[in-house]
């Protein structure tokens, strides 16, 4: 692939409190690629997503993160979003009194730094909501308030669709969902995965392989990527479990 390097993680060590979580992680993602990160609980998968987005609770002890060639270690969360990073949350927050539509339009304007005319926005919103099979009345509902698990995850993907990031990190987007919801979400992602958009998909299981053809699968164990391979690797995990990758 001739695409440019989008994300480069170099010997990243991260701790929270006095606990070391990432212990020298390396990863490179080119434009247009889809990477899957798999690993047992507690390996540091969600930490990776949070650190890339700039969560203030995680401390980078050493190592660097480059996005589009820029060292983003010192950037605030919103600045990262503006540069095209997106994190789909495992547990999205509920924001009372703020409608989905208002939130999405405000976010869109914040990310692009441009005014988004309301009619144009509504048209775009309807399109994406249809794609993800979200009923129209949801745009009037308060953000994630009273949403089921599946609805929250769909809403995350809707946000991704509207904000159109360069790199979308999907943190356990498929966990806790029934098969139908997973199908809608991954088919939505498949359609949205156009052009040069890159994905970093954090997941427990390989259901995703039915929908997305990953370029790489990485196995994350105890804060390090211990193996990288193709889609096959995910299937091997299914058979062998993570134990065999631990040292």
């Amino acid at each position: 692939m001739n695409n440019d390097l989008l994300l480069k993680i170099d010997e990243l060590k991260v701790s929270i409190g006095d606990r070391n979580i990432l212990k020298g992680l390396n990863l490179e993602i080119n434009e247009g690629e889809t990477h899957i990160i798999m690993g047992p609980n507690g390996a540091g998968k969600s930490t990776l997503g949070n650190v890339l987005m700039g969560h203030p609770e995680y401390k980078i002890d050493s190592g660097n993160i480059y996005f589009n060639g820029e060292d983003i270690n010192g950037l605030s969360v919103d600045e990262r979003a503006k540069r095209g990073l997106f994190l789909s949350f495992q547990y999205p927050e509920e924001i009372s009194g703020v409608t989905v539509e208002n939130f999405l339009r405000t976010s869109k304007m914040a990310v692009t730094g441009e005014n988004v005319p309301i009619l144009e926005f509504q048209k775009q919103l309807k399109e994406k909501m249809d794609l993800l099979q979200i009923p129209e009345e949801y745009k009037e509902r308060y953000l994630n308030v009273g949403f089921s698990g599946g609805e929250k995850k769909k809403n995350e993907i809707l946000q991704m669709a509207i904000l159109d990031p360069k790199l979308a990190i999907l943190d356990e987007t498929d966990s806790g969902l029934d098969v139908d919801a997973i199908k809608v979400i991954y088919e939505g992602i498949k359609i949205l995965k156009e052009g040069k958009k890159s994905f970093l998909v954090i997941t427990h299981y390989n259901k995703i392989l039915d929908y997305l053809a990953p370029d790489f699968v990485h196995i994350l164990v105890d804060g390090k990527i211990v193996e990288t391979g193709s889609a096959d690797l995910a299937n091997r995990i299914e058979e062998l479990g993570y134990e065999n990758f631990k040292k």
Binding site: M53, P56, D78, A81, E93, K108, A110
Partner: peptide, 23 residues
Amino acid sequence: FYLMSRGMSEEEAKAMIVRGFVE
């Protein structure tokens, strides 16, 4: 953190939450 990850500054994020609170 959630709202900032969608491009809002800390100030804007707090303002949005407060506006929602008084909605």
